[in-house]
Amino acid sequence: MIKSFLSYAFISALFVSQTFAQSPLIRKAVEFYQVQNFDSAAYFIDQAALSPTATNDANTFYYKGIIYKERFNNTRSDQRINARKTAIESFDRFLELSTDASLKQGVEKNIIYLVQTLYNDAAAKLNIETYQESLELFEQYKEMHKTYGLPDDIQSIEMQYNLVLANIYSELYERHREENKNNKFFEKVVVVYQDILKAQPDNWSANYNLGIHYYNEAVNRIKVADFDLDIVAVGLVEDEAVKIFEMALPYMQKAHDLKPNRKEPIIGLSGIYFSLNELDISEEFNKKVKSLENQ
């Protein structure tokens, strides 16, 4: 609140010191800004920016950036996304045109703030209903992160984002698993986890979850197999399932190696070996689970 108040005070002071030199349209925009009517302020600053003399006027773009930033902060409608985009573009143009070092520093902070709100919005929308919007926002965030050289560790942020995304795909895959054999989310989950593992081969969650994902798919292939399958097709279903169980194995084994005392990968290995008809090995892992439970 205090920060916001100081920001208003600073901008208002700046307007007061410069408005007389500005066009009536900018003056109007400032007046609306001061009473926090950001829609009207935006209307007038847009009109002002259309003037041929404004094209190369750094201050016009500064005001436009500030007005649109506030419009972004004060609306929940669809205009929010466009307001942020316009604010960033305006600040960007200001940086190209201005020679005022101290103002430029403030504008850079504003850009960082707006880019980080992209990240927040992407995170907030990262759920089963709105994950596609989240993906778009996160792509924008990554692009702008690169453009403006933000200090956050993008690799780590992307890793966390992808772990959640894979989990969402996984849930969507589970929802349609039994009725749809060619579930498009199966491959999506694999791709995201493999991307994570390319960057971080020792990521426990990605190894474990990918192992489970393959296991569940293999089980499903057999579970949904219809009794009408002829004897040749039964063999083919099993061949496919065995291949997928074998794909699960290295990831589950890695998860176990990374955290030998975690029960879940041991249960996973027991299940995979059981389905691969390696009953003795499966039983060994079962015993391990029991011994961990008794500790």
Partner: peptide, 20 residues
């Protein structure tokens, strides 16, 4: 969100060998 990340779970204990 990460609270859900490790919630991927085994499909119910389905005996694939028995079904085959």
């Amino acid at each position: 969100a990460l609270f859900f990340v490790q919630s991927t779970s085994f499909t119910d204990q389905f005996n694939t060998n028995a079904k085959i």
